[in-house]
């Protein structure tokens, strides 16, 4: 049984990392009061940019290109999210429609760019991150093989970002201001907080994190940008955000939950002990749970109160 666990754990963590970071992006945006269903599109922009950068610079920069690549993926996501920010903050557009537009625009523009820049809609990278044991830590009995073996560096990066996010959101004035804009922007404004600025920061952070998620997808398990990258990870992240009750550690738990459900479902066919488990339940699990969570939580709505509403200073 332990070998099965030590086989599943590292893979589940690897799959959870991009899901978690994208969901965390959604958290920043929604906490500032802007609903962002464009996460899928922002992830795609990050995936495309990092794949394009790595594939064209690996020869000259070597492994350094991979690290630069994920930074560029994150930045590209951030830049692209400004469109969403402008439409939904300055123009007071419907945020759901603007987010949908981001998704549609992203999948079209990345394929178009890929084709015109490289001649093919598929951009392959020679090398991405490689799973490694963490020296020292992987020798710890029990925990070592589960958490510190066969792991991608990006997984730890994501965990660190979650902890920093929690600290920033709940321990620093900036976090209070950001959350205030998502709960009651009029009150925040009356206290001298620049709501427009805070919401811009929230949306751009969500773009950066979703873009980073896309870059992680490419550099860990996809290895190639193509139209297939848009397979709903951004929407699953939204589900994790809701299931995690818009809280950093809640989102962490929800993402882990989804990540494990999927990995166990995939792996179940490989092990005699798990073969009898019906993997259809594991596969549908995240979606069923999200719907149930929505039904249960929507009564005492735990989401940011002002999320989805354009800020109108005249309204009290």
């Amino acid at each position: 049984m332990f070998d099965i666990l030590s086989s599943i754990f590292p893979l589940a963590l690897a799959y959870t990392a991009p899901l978690l970071i994208i969901a965390l992006g959604g958290l920043f945006s929604e906490r500032s009061g802007v609903v962002n269903i464009g996460l899928e599109g922002l992830m795609g922009i990050g995936a495309f940019s990092s794949a394009f950068f790595i594939s064209s610079n690996y020869e000259s920069l070597g492994d350094f290109a991979i690290i630069l690549g994920i930074i560029i993926g994150a930045l590209a996501g951030g830049v692209f999210s400004i469109i969403h920010a402008f439409a939904s903050i300055n123009m007071k557009a419907d945020q759901v429609i603007s987010g949908t537009a981001i998704n549609m625009l992203s999948s079209a523009i990345t394929i178009y760019l890929a084709r015109s820049l490289t001649g093919s809609a598929n951009i392959q990278i020679i090398k991405g991150f490689i799973k490694n044991d963490i020296a020292g830590l992987s020798k710890i009995p029990l925990i070592g093989p589960l958490f510190f073996s066969n792991a991608y560096a990006t997984t730890y990066l994501v965990i660190i970002i979650v902890i920093i996010s929690w600290y920033v959101l709940y321990k620093l004035p900036f976090g209070y201001h950001l959350r205030a804009c998502g709960e009651n922007p009029q009150a925040a404004d009356s206290m001298g907080i620049n709501v427009i600025k805070m919401r811009y920061i929230g949306v751009i952070l969500s773009g950066i994190l979703a873009g980073l998620g896309g870059a992680i997808v490419i550099t860990t398990y996809y290895g190639e940008f193509s139209a297939n990258v848009y397979s709903g990870l951004g929407f699953l992240a939204l589900a994790a955000l809701i299931f995690g009750k818009w809280k950093p550690f809640g989102v962490l738990g929800a993402s882990l939950f989804f990540g494990f459900a999927k990995t166990v479902a995939d792996m179940s066919q490989l092990f005699e002990a798990l073969k009898k488990m019906p993997n259809i339940y594991f596969n549908t699990f995240p979606y069923v749970v999200t719907i149930l969570a929505l039904i249960i939580f929507s009564k005492n709505s735990v989401g940011p109160k002002a999320a989805g509403e354009p800020y109108d200073p005249g309204k009290r």
Binding site: L11, Y15, Y221, Y222, N228, D266, M267, Q269, L270
Partner: peptide, 17 residues
């Protein structure tokens, strides 16, 4: 035909075995 994550998971399991 489009779930690369599952493809990696399965491959990792088989190579491990």
């Amino acid at each position: 035909f489009n779930d690369a994550a599952a493809g990696q998971t399965l491959a990792a399991g088989m190579y491990d075995k």
